[in-house]
């Protein structure tokens, strides 16, 4: 029997919409956030001003990126109340909802790296440089130290996340070169490389969402046929096999690893309906998750 193309079984089982539910919701989320920022400059309707680093919604709600503010604090700048309140709101949100929800539901670079990953699969590019996944955490630490040493918000010198978001809203100029570099890096050099090994923004949010509530759970893993399609589409593919394993040595079916971006692609692509979003249960909890 020849293997059906990636995602085919899920479409047969759940229909196209069912097999792309979370992906579509995610794109809606990403693009509507961009749209909220864009209708100001485009149509002079000011719902949100600023960009992801710091913004003001409806002239009352301040939001500030806690990682940028942390670097600013490390650089020796005194933090203002407005910025602190904004960062606390953002931090609380991601602390509860899942840190890397930022990566897959908000970050504009995700659209770029998802596209690279998709094209990589379509073109069958196999070359892949594997780096240490812990590198992003070291880089996170390095950016904080470098911010303190240089007295600047250091990651903002290169950060493609703010570069792209700011660029779309305020004018991109040659910033596309950096974005293209990230795309090509993910496409040719390293699969899911930027988010998977390097980006300290994702690393920061991953730390922030260490105990967040919504988690993906392989709660019907006995139905798993080991087709591995979820692992193929997962941006952090190392996290799925352990929770899918049944029988001897099985662990809790919930993905507690905070690098999971809660993107839900594994849920979409699973024809067997193994994976679901669930609220966090404490590991070692005797009660099975449904």
């Amino acid at each position: 029997m020849t293997k059906s193309p990636l995602g085919h079984d899920a479409i047969v089982q759940k229909g196209y919409l069912g097999a792309h539910k979370w992906l579509i919701l995610r794109r809606i989320s990403q693009f509507s956030i961009l749209a909220l920022f864009l209708i100001g400059p485009l149509f002079d309707l000011w719902v949100v001003k600023g960009n992801l680093n710091s913004s003001l919604t409806l002239d009352v709600l301040p939001l500030t990126d806690p990682y940028v503010l942390l670097q600013s604090w490390f650089s020796g700048h005194t933090i203002t109340n407005t910025a602190l309140i904004g960062a606390m709101i953002v931090a609380t949100f991601y602390f509860l909802i899942g840190g890397r929800v930022y990566c897959s539901w908000v970050c504009p670079v995700n659209i770029i790296t998802d596209a690279a990953s998709w094209l990589r699969r379509r073109l069958g590019i196999k070359s892949n440089t594997v780096l240490a996944r812990s590198m992003r955490y070291w880089l996170l630490l390095a950016t904080l130290i470098a911010s303190a040493v240089t007295g600047t918000i250091i990651w903002e010198f290169v950060n493609p996340v703010s570069l792209l978001h700011r660029g779309i809203i305020f004018g991109m100029g040659l910033g596309w070169i950096i974005i293209l570099a990230v795309f090509l890096f993910d496409l040719i050099i390293s699969q899911r490389g930027w988010c998977g090994y390097i980006c300290p923004v994702g690393a920061f949010y991953s730390v922030l969402g260490h105990t967040s509530l919504p988690r993906i759970s392989a709660d019907k893993r006995e139905q798993c046929t080991n087709c591995m399609e979820c692992v193929v589409v997962c941006p952090e593919p190392q996290i799925l096999p352990p929770v899918l394993k049944t029988g001897k040595g099985q662990i809790h079916p919930m993905i507690f690893d905070s690098v999971c971006t809660n993107c839900g692609r594994c849920i979409d692509i699973c024809a067997e309906d193994v994976l679901h979003f669930r609220l966090r249960k404490i590991p070692g909890d005797k009660k099975p998750v449904r």
Binding site: G40, W46, K49, G50, N51, N53, S54, S55, L56, T64, D65, V68, L69, S72, S75, G76, H77, A83, S147, G151, T152, I153, E156, S162, L163, R166, G167, I169, F170, G171, M172, G173, L174, G175, I177, I178
Partner: peptide
């Protein structure tokens, strides 16, 4: 450079379009 988070709120509230945010080629 340690205090500015590059958010552009100053640019938005400048009534004369005087201020702009630097692009990478600037």
């Amino acid at each position: 450079l340690g205090a500015c988070v590059r958010c552009g709120l100053c640019v938005r509230d400048c009534p004369y379009d005087t201020l702009k945010l630097a692009k990478i080629e600037d």
